Simulated assay, not measured.
Amino acid sequence: MSKIKTTLETLKKRLDSNNLLEVQQEDGYIEKVEMIFNPPATEDDLQKLPFSVPKDYEEFLRLHHGGLIFNSPEGGGGLKLLTVDEILEYRAIPGYEDYPANWFPVAYGYDGCYLIITDKKVGRGYLFWMETGNDFEDDMFLGMNFEDFLENIIMAQGSKFWEWGFRIPPTFNF
């Protein structure tokens, strides 16, 4: 079984009857968040894409044509996984014509930020995180593919794991 399919099936087993998942977030805050997955994309949907998507992302679309993960029913937020039509719609918004030609938003959330797929690969990675209002030179290369991103955001319970610093141990002089 593929990593995407295993990740999603395992997550779905943890959801309650209302598709809610109890998570512990920063500062010890506990809440129930929605995990909503759309039905699969059709071949017609996939044919609309103006670029060749990576195989792991295509597999996600074939399982779920977008969705909404880690959304607070009371406060919103979370990460909206875009459908093909939404990808094309976001790409066509005035002002976004400045995107590099090979950049496509595939998720939106966390106060107006975008998860970007590009054909620019470094190792297995091809994802960028684009903060609202930043120019392209300040965007963060995540160094991972979509299946790793999905697995990591689920393990991090919806937190922006890519912003976590690494703890640097103190220097000891004995």
Rank of each mutant, 00 (worst) to 15 (best):
N38F: 08
P73Q: 03
G66L: 06
K13Q: 15
L11C: 11
G95M: 03
D135C: 10
D119T: 15
R14K: 15
F51V: 13
T6M: 11
Q47W: 03
T6E: 15
K55S: 15
F128W: 12
D27A: 12
L142M: 15
I153P: 02
D138I: 01
I154P: 04
M1Y: 09
T118E: 11
I4E: 04
V106G: 00
L115D: 10
Q25W: 11
E97M: 07
E34N: 07
S17N: 13
N19M: 10
I154Y: 08
K120S: 13
R91I: 01
S52P: 00
F172C: 09
H64M: 10
Y108P: 06
S17V: 12
R124S: 12
F166S: 10
N173I: 14
I168A: 14
E131N: 07
G75R: 10
L88N: 07
Q47D: 15
G112P: 10
I93E: 13
M144A: 11
D148N: 07
F166T: 09
P40A: 08
R14D: 13
P170M: 02
E9M: 08
E97Y: 05
I93D: 09
Y99Q: 07
I36V: 11
L88S: 06
R14P: 05
N152R: 14
F70N: 05
F174G: 13
Y108T: 09
K160L: 15
G66Q: 05
I69G: 05
Y99E: 09
E31N: 01
E31G: 03
E137I: 06
P50G: 07
Y90D: 12
Q24S: 14
D135G: 13
E86S: 01
H64W: 08
F60I: 07
K13L: 14
I154M: 05
Y108M: 10
F70T: 01
F149S: 07
F70H: 04
Y90L: 14
G28W: 01
A107C: 03
E74S: 09
G133D: 00
F172L: 15
N38D: 12
D45L: 01
L20R: 10
M130N: 09
D139W: 15
E26D: 09
L79Y: 11
Q157S: 11
G133T: 03
L79I: 15
T7C: 05
L88T: 06
Y108E: 15
G109E: 01
S2V: 04
F174Y: 11
T118I: 08
S159M: 04
E59P: 01
L68N: 02
D119R: 07
Y126W: 10
I93Q: 12
N152G: 00
D139N: 15
M1K: 09
H65D: 01
I36T: 08
D85K: 04
W164L: 08
L63H: 02
A92L: 08
L115S: 11
E31Q: 11
E34Q: 11
D98R: 12
K80L: 12
T7A: 02
E9S: 12
M140N: 12
K5E: 14
Y126I: 00
Q157F: 01
V23Q: 08
K80P: 02
N18F: 13
L49K: 00
